[in-house]
Design a protein around this nucleic acid. Structure first.
Lengths: 335, 335
DNA sequence: GAACTTTATGCAAACGTTTGCAATTACTTT
DNA sequence: AAAGTAATTGCAAACGTTTGCATAAAGTTC
């Protein structure tokens, strides 16, 4: 560490100008002559100066930080083990960085229930991005009602007081189911917990497709983990035998858990049971047989999430938006 | 949002005391009578007050923020697609939170090359945790040399000027290889890029075990992605046929990519080729056949990383530490 | 009850930026 | 060349905490 941390005033002294001039120069303020700006910027770089963000934030009342909250349901372990949520976080990070914003990673443990207070009033961040609606949206609603700049990755069709960006889960669930039906499946099980926000929509899409085909729906309600899927399918097979020929899984990890249970019993995929997942994580392509899945365009979604948050930071309201989904057809279903 | 954000002075006025008293009370300073402390804390809660962290940080010169840098090599896509790194981040987050620290998620794009400057001099964070040593440690070394509080997840045996916490990769590579040898494999390939910090150690462990058994080593150098592994193994098979009976993969994702290539060609695992991975991610247990792997205790490592960083923040030096690893024996290898 | 210690609170000066306004300098215009 | 305008720069006051020091109140001792 240098023997002493430079501050604006030191730079000013070195250059023989006032602190205001340096401050403005570094912020590219046109009030300052271009020549002076360049000179000061170079001096700053040369002395390896960097602004004290604490002071800057105090003065400007802006942080250029966005809090990202992974909103997992307490009780399940989804957040840590499901690559999908973390991938979304990674892409949000990139999208934020491109706008010069930083990412404060948080979770319900740290933030408590009053997010407005914890993040905004305390000037930890300028706005919030919530990843996942979870089962209980009260925290989100409260923050939104408090007027916090806020966007949510979730199901954009749910009616709520905050803007949501995400895939059309209903259509995703429907397309996935129709795809199985087109492949000849009749007894299709939905694997996932309909009480969970986005997954509920997928379930309703599944129901719609089943109804349209005049098939009777069935659901195995489990946590969003591969382990739960594995034991869930095993239990079903033990109890009722092979009573189904298709599975719509609420996520790829869940689908892969189910796939393991099937493979262990030498149930052929897709001939005996066709299987479709949701998310299109990297493993979907790598599993054997590879897993058909509803691909969510997380990268585009992240960019839009950030745009909408920026709009709110500038005082403009913003609304929910649906991101296109796409069925990726692989070996786990018949074409 | 309340019509006006309360500050310390407002609370003080409400309570009829000075701002110093409120400040001290909320910080549990024993100078203030217990009774007064309780009263003020309750008042704060009731009015839903929260400190302006910007002001607080400016005054105290502490942020209670730790920057976490995912140090992926530019050119590869490892960071986004490998669940392992992100899992580590998740667990570091938990460990930090337990100490009342917040996590600023960052990457090389945002931080540039001069981490000391960007994070510490600018008072964005008090310290840095780097996840992954990558191929080129110059940024880390420079930051450490500048006296930045810093810890690294990586290979603790590499000789360097900063403390590293991580698994004993050499031993891991050796154990993995010995396990295959014990199962009868003779022509064992190492799958991964030895130029990469931690992976190089695993490779050297592999070499040691091969040498001890008097077998000739072979390496297929690829990026740390399942896709690269898949094409790498495919290419090898096309060129030389089934010239190996064991694979030591540098990570589970890589192992799973290799597994897919083998399965597609009806090569039996573990009978024709035994396969062992590294990391023990969730998918290792879910794949079929399930994947033997060297398990890294990321949770313990995260706690220790944070402890060591805290020690440095308090001015004490700290040193590297090895975290125990464990071979998880599954179906992809013979017992 | 005077002198002293202990306990509890308040005063005011920082921390390092940013920015409205005033002041200076340079450039036009008549 | 005077007067006016435009282009630069500097002064000084915030932003909301924390904390060393001074002070006031209460308790103790002789």
């Amino acid at each position: 560490m240098n023997n002493k941390q430079l501050k604006l005033a030191d730079l000013a002294k070195l250059a023989g100008v006032s602190t205001s001039t340096v401050s403005r120069a570094l912020n590219d303020n046109p009030l300052i002559k271009q020549e002076t700006r360049d000179k000061l910027k170079q001096l700053a770089k040369q002395h390896n100066f960097s602004l004290n963000t604490a002071a800057s934030r105090l003065r400007t009342q802006k942080t250029n930080v966005v809090a990202v909250i992974i909103n997992f349901d307490s009780g399940t372990e989804q957040s840590i083990n499901d690559p999908f949520l973390l991938k979304v976080v990674g892409e949000i990070n990139l999208a934020l960085n491109k706008q010069g914003l930083e990412l404060l990673l948080s979770n319900s443990f740290m933030a408590g229930d009053d997010w407005a207070n914890y993040f905004i009033n305390s000037r930890r961040a300028d706005g919030i991005i919530v990843v996942g609606q979870g089962k209980d949206p009260t925290n989100i609603e409260a923050a939104a009602a408090a007027g916090v700049p806020l966007v949510v990755w979730g199901d954009p069709k749910t009616h709520c007081n905050y803007p949501v960006v995400g895939s059309d889960n209903f259509v995703g669930g429907r397309i996935a189911t129709e795809h199985l039906i087109a492949g000849g499946a009749k007894n299709i099980v939905f694997l996932g917990d309909p009480a969970h926000g986005e997954i509920g929509e997928r379930y309703r899409g599944y129901l719609a497709a089943m109804k349209a085909a005049n098939y009777t729906p069935d659901v195995v309600s489990i946590d969003i983990t591969s382990g739960a899927a594995y034991t869930g399918i095993n239990a079903l097979l033990l109890k009722n035998g092979l009573c189904f020929d298709g599975i719509v899984a609420c996520s790829d990890m869940v689908a892969l858990g189910a796939m393991k249970a099937l493979k262990e019993r030498y149930i052929s995929i897709p001939n005996d049971v066709a299987l479709v997942g949701f998310d299109d994580i990297a493993m979907a392509d790598i599993s054997h047989p590879s897993l058909s899945s509803i691909k969510q365009n997380t990268q585009l979604a992240s960019v839009i999430l950030v745009e909408k948050l920026l709009a709110q930071l500038q005082g403009q309201p913003s609304n929910s938006q649906v991101i296109e989904i796409e069925l990726i057809n692989r070996q786990s279903t018949k074409p």
